[in-house]
């Protein structure tokens, strides 16, 4: 296994109390595999990624427990200067907002080249040449001329390609993409996702794709982890989950997508709102919004039940949910 996250816990100390952003998350990714982490805002999907990368703001954040095992080594026990060598070189991240993630006063070539200068000790000239190569690889037209341009001179789609180029630069074995196409238009989104998938195949990388878009997940993922209020509520291979979800939250998300035959009728809507992370309800965090909630859901935290070899669901009534098609 390339990366294994075990029982990760992350808290934030705020004025209103301790917000438990991640409450015991476990997932794994193998080389060449795409794991989609699906969740709404505040579900802890991005915080988990930041903890894996080691870019969590500490304080106010604090990793309260768990392990992040990357190539057999627990990163949470690794010294910071060691981690810095891994970060960028062997695991890299692509952020949602390329404009604010790129340095506005440095040329794109300088920012891409920096990767080679810092991690590989190359000369400026060689690094520049590699930067052009990278830009060609992510299919930026006229790369040679554009290498000296600044980020604001590129369009949104092109900037996201530069982000991808930067993440790919040192051919990492793991890439974490946090909502990589959310800020892009659909036709450009399709281009960028295709590029990302091609490069992943070529380099046999593990990819963690963090998103809230069920469509994107269905298009590219091998397996899914659905998060809610800092916990994983369901993990499954992508085909299974869309056919028959084993958790009422996943089911609710799928049902709230408008379908053709629902025209003119009400959409299914999950009632209520996601909980405040400083006051997560006792028992199953989803119970106040769940159509299936029983007494046990209000008192006991459901563990991840084994649905089959590859599937887990954190619902006491996963059997009933599964049958209820």
């Amino acid at each position: 296994m390339l990366l294994e996250v075990r029982e990760l816990q992350v808290e934030f100390h705020t004025r209103d109390g301790v917000a438990k952003a991640v409450n015991g998350v476990s997932y794994s990714v193998d080389a060449g595999e795409t794991l989609a982490v699906l969740g709404e805002s505040g579900s802890g999907k991005s915080v988990t990624a930041q903890a894996i990368m080691g870019i969590l703001d500490v304080p106010p954040g604090r990793i309260a427990g768990g392990e992040v095992v990357f190539k057999g080594r627990d990163l949470l026990k690794t010294k910071e200067d060691e981690r810095r060598k891994i970060r960028g070189a062997d695991m890299a991240m692509i952020f949602q907002d390329a404009l604010s993630s790129l340095n506005p006063v440095l040329t794109v070539g300088a920012q891409l080249g920096e990767m080679f200068i810092v991690h590989r000790g190359m000369s400026r000239k060689d690094a520049r040449a590699r930067a052009v190569e990278l830009m060609e690889r992510v299919r930026i037209p006229a790369a040679k001329e554009r290498v000296n341009d600044y980020p604001h001179q590129f369009s949104g789609g092109m900037r996201q390609r530069i982000m991808i180029a930067m993440a790919m630069a040192l051919e990492p074995s793991l890439i974490i993409a946090d909502e990589p196409t959310t800020a892009l238009d659909v036709t450009v989104q399709a281009q960028v996702m295709e590029l990302l998938a091609d490069l992943q195949r070529e380099l046999n990388m593990g990819l963690i794709l963090i998103t809230h878009d069920l469509g994107v997940v269905a298009d590219v993922a091998d397996k899914i982890a659905v998060m809610y209020a800092g916990r994983i509520v369901e993990t499954a291979p992508v085909h299974d989950i869309y056919k028959a979800p084993a958790h009422p939250y996943t089911r609710g998300l799928l049902d709230s997508i408008p379908r053709l035959d629902q025209k003119g009728r009400d959409l299914y809507a999950i009632k209520g709102l996601p909980p405040n992370l400083t006051r997560i309800p006792p028992g199953c965090a989803f119970n106040p919004r769940c159509p299936r909630a029983q007494d046990i859901c209000r008192t006991d935290v459901p563990p991840l039940f084994e649905v089959d070899e590859n599937r887990r669901s954190a619902c006491f009534f996963w059997r009933e949910t599964l049958d209820d098609v």
Binding site: V186, T187, Q189, A190, E194, A218, H239
Partner: peptide, 27 residues
């Protein structure tokens, strides 16, 4: 047609059979 084909469909079964028009360039 291109716009409709670019929208990700929340159905993994459709991903093999689906025809996709990937537009080149940008607006």
């Amino acid at each position: 047609q291109a716009l409709l084909s670019a929208v990700p469909v929340p159905d993994p079964e459709a991903r093999e059979g689906r025809e996709r028009i990937i537009l080149t360039g940008e607006v």
